[in-house]
Simulated scan of single mutants.
Amino acid sequence: MDLTSYVIDLARAAGTVDKRCLFAPATEMRVGRYGEREAAFHFVLEGECTVDLPGRTLHLGPGDAVLLPTSPPHTIRTAGPAPYRPSFETPGSTFDTVRSPSGEVGTDIFCGHFTMASGAGDLLLRSLPDPLVVSFGAANEAVRSLAALLRTEARSESSGSAAILNALCTALLALMLRHSGTPAPWTAVTDDRIAAALNAVLDDPGAQWTVDRLAESASMSRATFIRHFTRHTATPVATFITQLRMMIATDLLTDPSHTVASVAARVGYHSESAFTRTFQAATGQTPGRYRRTATVSRGTP
């Protein structure tokens, strides 16, 4: 499994469509703050809109998507003569449809959120740009297909539509990370040599991954590897390895058959105390407390 897919899986990222917005010009919709480890997203299939965030306004067009890791309250508006007209909602079995009072449709937006697990999900959200804006463009075949599937399921709301829509949302997240164009630790890198080195860490996170060893895995010199790695991930090598190890550790700690010491060893720490310090710095909790919290949240006896 590639790194981006693995990290999405570790974070237990689950997508949900909350609303489909069919807006005429001069329409607005206010969106409240989401809960902990919930990241709002908006995906524009047709037309244009602005997303007004605290201290910043985003302009989105067809094929644009935005992910808000901290999900602050924000407002979606379509251009037109003031005053803006409030939208109205029609409840649905799978999601709500939000429309302009006139019934005219110029902008088609899917709005929803991703829910992440504690630990790995927290680390993933904190590592992403806020906001993360991706312009796929009209020529991206995968995104055109995704948009068509979203529209088909939105029209039908048939048996299984919720599951299909949620799976499509998760696919959207993977595509956003792949095409973000913004250096971040978990995005898919375009250099196959760097990707090979990252996958080697993924296959054996407990190994002694020095820069020299990673450079060798990438078939690069040490200096070339560091330069390419930093450009692709915007993260120092040692920081990246620590982040990945801690994400893997959060997953292992949910299995009661693993002791804290065995988890520490699996991710490359010979000292349980050193592992505990690093884990607490990354997650804000000790491994033992994290395990108890995660177990309760998952309903494990």
Rank of each mutant, 00 (worst) to 15 (best):
V44R: 00
V44N: 01
V44G: 01
E46I: 06
E46G: 04
E48Q: 12
E48F: 07
C49R: 00
T50G: 07
V51E: 03
D52M: 04
L53H: 05
L53R: 05
G55P: 09
G55S: 09
R56Y: 06
T57P: 01
T57F: 00
L60Y: 04
L60R: 02
G61V: 06
D64L: 02
V66I: 13
L67F: 11
L68G: 04
P69W: 07
S71H: 02
S71A: 13
S71C: 06
T75W: 00
T75N: 07
T75C: 11
I76A: 00
R77C: 04
R77I: 00
R77L: 00
P81V: 12
A82D: 15
P83Q: 11
Y84I: 01
R85I: 09
R85W: 06
R85N: 08
F88P: 02
T90D: 06
G92Q: 10
F95E: 01
F95T: 00
D96L: 03
T97I: 12
T97D: 05
V98Y: 00
V98A: 03
S100C: 09
S100K: 03
P101F: 15
S102A: 15
G103S: 12
G103M: 13
E104K: 15
T107N: 07
T107Q: 07
D108E: 15
I109W: 06
I109E: 05
C111K: 04
G112A: 12
H113L: 15
H113A: 14
H113W: 13
F114V: 05
T115L: 13
M116V: 08
M116T: 07
S118D: 11
G119V: 05
G119K: 03
A120D: 05
A120S: 11
A120I: 03
L124A: 07
R126E: 14
S127V: 12
L128E: 09
D130M: 09
P131K: 03
V133R: 04
V133N: 00
F136N: 05
A138F: 13
A139H: 13
A139T: 15
E141W: 11
A142P: 01
V143E: 07
V143K: 05
S145T: 13
L146H: 05
L146W: 03
L149N: 11
L149S: 15
L150A: 08
R151T: 07
E153D: 07
E157S: 10
E157Q: 14
G160W: 09
S161D: 08
A162M: 08
L165E: 06
N166E: 08
N166C: 06
N166V: 01
